[in-house]
Design a protein around this nucleic acid. Sequence first.
DNA 1: TTGTAGGCGTTATCAC
DNA 2: GTGATAACGCCTACAA
Lengths: 336, 336
Amino acid sequence: MYKPTIQDVARRAGVGVGTVSRVLNNHVAVRTATREAVLSAISELNYIPNPHARRIAGGRSYTISVLLPVITTEFYVRLLDGLEQAFQEARYDVAIFPLLDRSRLERYLGSHTLAYQADGLVMTTYNLTQLFQQRQQVDQPMVLVDAHGDDVDCAYMDNVMGGHIAGEYAAALGGNLYAVWVETELDQLFTTRVFTERRSGFLQAIHDRRLTVAGEYTSSFDSLNARTVAMQMLDDLQFPATIFASADLLAGALLDEAQARGLTVGDELKIIGFDDQPWAARRGLTTLNQPIEAMGYEAAQLLLSRLAGETGPARARRFEPRLVIRSSTGNRSFQD
Amino acid sequence: MYKPTIQDVARRAGVGVGTVSRVLNNHVAVRTATREAVLSAISELNYIPNPHARRIAGGRSYTISVLLPVITTEFYVRLLDGLEQAFQEARYDVAIFPLLDRSRLERYLGSHTLAYQADGLVMTTYNLTQLFQQRQQVDQPMVLVDAHGDDVDCAYMDNVMGGHIAGEYAAALGGNLYAVWVETELDQLFTTRVFTERRSGFLQAIHDRRLTVAGEYTSSFDSLNARTVAMQMLDDLQFPATIFASADLLAGALLDEAQARGLTVGDELKIIGFDDQPWAARRGLTTLNQPIEAMGYEAAQLLLSRLAGETGPARARRFEPRLVIRSSTGNRSFQD
DNA sequence: TTGTAGGCGTTATCAC
DNA sequence: GTGATAACGCCTACAA
């Protein structure tokens, strides 16, 4: 299968390669008639510019690398969706590099890899910018998503606010207050602050109301441990109780366990989750919904603007979770 | 940060660029002394060849594209591990492209993308070769992993055999036999045959023993639906019962539900899973273990051999699941 | 065995 | 506005 080159297009359109290149890259100085001739030659030949050649020629490769932790959640699928949408609109290609462990990260940073050869870098969840800066990779713009740092563009969810909303609502609901957090057992480099932030927001809200938390629990992020902790909590509980489960995974385990014990959720026992996973509506879980796709989309826009030459100071885009009230808190609105 | 080029290396080593290139690509005709001079210049300068330039120059980019359905299950993490290991050993770089939906696939096939520009392609789980062939992509070698096709190299798990082993063991355990399958609600193109194969092997084994299955169920691949189906099954069950759950996700839901009902698993109720997930040992689940990393590694080797010039007919590498017996079937060995 | 030169497909810099 | 032409970094003849 012969692949047409820019030469072929130029010949067919009866112009020089320079002109074709100008059309390709949206340069201004091209007469409309010429541009159309070129465009039709392009589509007739089904011509696609070679990204490697573009890169070599000192230009762009029109490729973005996304460094993604491999955590088995829907969160990253949705995030990717938002990112890809934006990049696709700008005709950039996206490659994913799974951040399984530290050694892999080091490899990606070894400046020969594709991850590094891309025009830009999207880092998710972990703020690894220090590592990047110490390698002086000033030439490759980068954006942080689902995390925030000081000297780098980022799009992040306000988890403190999410925790705070949950705390205020829990306080309004009344009963003995309990919470369960996710423990992130990663090393210093790979640390994510998501859950500590949710916790600080929650505790702040409770504290502001002059209330106290009757019990705090911790679970790792897997359904087996979540289940064990859920059993523990329901054993300990003093009714009436309101539980803030800082991830829907944990809330789901609590719902399961409550159901297994014949407890009705929404009255003496109220549960608030976090994430609004697809099943949350079906099971009537009150939870915090996050505009994940929007966050991904915006992160991509930040990076694209850098690629377009933006040189201002680092920008941070904040996204807010939204409380979705369902039957697990008795459908009681904030003011009841 | 200045990146040294092949010119810099040549100058430093006091040789021509051609020689450096020869060393880089392991060509024979280089005197040992010269080679060493070049190698030390390379390491002194910390030189890394530019993959884009290599590709442009008609050579290799030393890049492999892996097309993965959502990366979020442990299966793919392990598969990736095997793949990356082999490719890394051969000094190839791996980029992942998430196959979330059909439109994305079409994009990847649009021959401008990086996915397509790589030296080789790894397709996982779905056999999309027809699509590729119809586009006459003869120039890019490809391997199928976790799926099999006729005219393409592949490394696959023998799921028929896995189902068969489960069937024979279930038959030996006795009791009323039940099974639950995973329903794959994908379109024709994206279809995976994994579960229909497990089913056919299982039914064959049962049939060979002149036994019948008392009940078959179906669940989608998510924990919520798995739970619903598990409840249904335990409602319907006639004891003593032996259940083959064709994925550990389903087996886990059954274990949960049995525990919630105070049933002891391993005696009147026996459960066989499939996958041997990390938690399976802890929970004493009898299940089928798959050599996933080995399959990935072998798939990579198949592709690498093509890149090295192998032109023979398509090869298929079969991998066999292995029964791991634990307490969920009363630790009873095959012959008890 | 090794150096030189031409070419890969594109962009950028010139003149015109 | 547009067409030559020199890069970009590398590989591969070809000649020495």
